[in-house]
Design a binder for these strands. Structure first.
Length: 251
DNA sequence: AGCACA
């Protein structure tokens, strides 16, 4: 008779009971924003922190390069995790074939170790995190192997969320008048090569728009040409245009 | 200054 295994790997475990945590205060946010992480944090560490928590689905680790860059922090003394509700929910759902977590590395390549890839980090630096968990090891390896790595420095990925200099092929347009219409804006934008699509959000207040272009360079061209220009509908100054924080999702 | 889409 075959004995049942001592424990199930997390990816085979039965669904955890629903504690109703997914319904929160009502703003619909079910993503946590975690900051205060050391620069050398590994995606697997974050995954280990949350993987046993009821309702946890997936995590996404982004090296912004904004934080402790160039500064040696003693993890024993300096670091405090800060966790808050995210501004918006993560759009990355756990799709079959993709890894349990996602890595986005936007750090500039000045430090000695530049980025984590899916291949090379083995154990040694994550005892603290492992101590939090009751068990692991086998599952970790498989998790590591299926890690998805999104590298902003990879050559020729115009469709990346953002390039290293902050450019993006989607533009964010603000300072629009209350009567600005999608058609009006679309008419202007379509004069510029590579223009794909436009979305206007009112969000209760003044409208803002997202304009997607085929290539980053084409978005750059449009931003340069249209920055500060005034639409007919405007009851205020010209448009404020920036690169969007993330590329518009595929239609 | 204001950054969504699922």
């Amino acid at each position: 008779m075959a004995h049942p295994p001592p424990y199930e790997p997390y990816y085979l475990a039965p669904p955890l009971p629903d504690y109703g945590y997914s319904t929160n205060d009502g703003n619909g946010i079910n993503t946590l924003f975690v900051s205060g992480l050391p620069d050398d944090v590994k995606a697997r560490e974050i995954h280990n922190l949350f993987r046993r928590r009821p309702g946890f689905e997936s995590c996404q680790l982004k090296y912004t390069g904004r934080g402790n860059q160039g500064v040696k922090f003693d993890p024993e003394t300096g670091l405090t995790l800060h966790i808050e509700l995210a501004r918006s929910n993560s759009r990355r759902k756990h799709k079959p074939g993709s890894g349990p977590y996602v890595v986005i590395d936007l750090r500039t390549k000045s430090g000695a170790d530049a980025r984590e890839t899916s291949s090379d980090d083995d154990d040694g630096s994550d005892e603290n995190v492992d101590a939090v968990n009751q068990d692991d090891s086998a599952a970790d390896k498989s998790a590591e192997q299926t890690t998805t790595s999104i590298d902003a420095f990879a050559p020729d990925n115009d469709q990346a969320e953002k390039t290293s200099d902050g450019a993006c092929s989607t533009l964010f347009i603000a300072n629009l008048g209350p009567n600005c219409t999608e058609d009006e804006l679309k008419q202007v934008l379509s004069l510029y090569p590579g223009f794909n699509s436009l979305k206007i959000r009112a969000r209760g207040g003044m409208p803002v728009a997202f304009a997607d272009f085929e290539k980053v360079e084409q978005a750059t061209h449009a931003i340069n040409a249209l920055q500060g220009s005034t639409l007919a509908s405007s009851d205020r100054g010209g448009m404020h245009i920036e690169y969007a924080r993330s590329k518009m999702r595929k239609p």
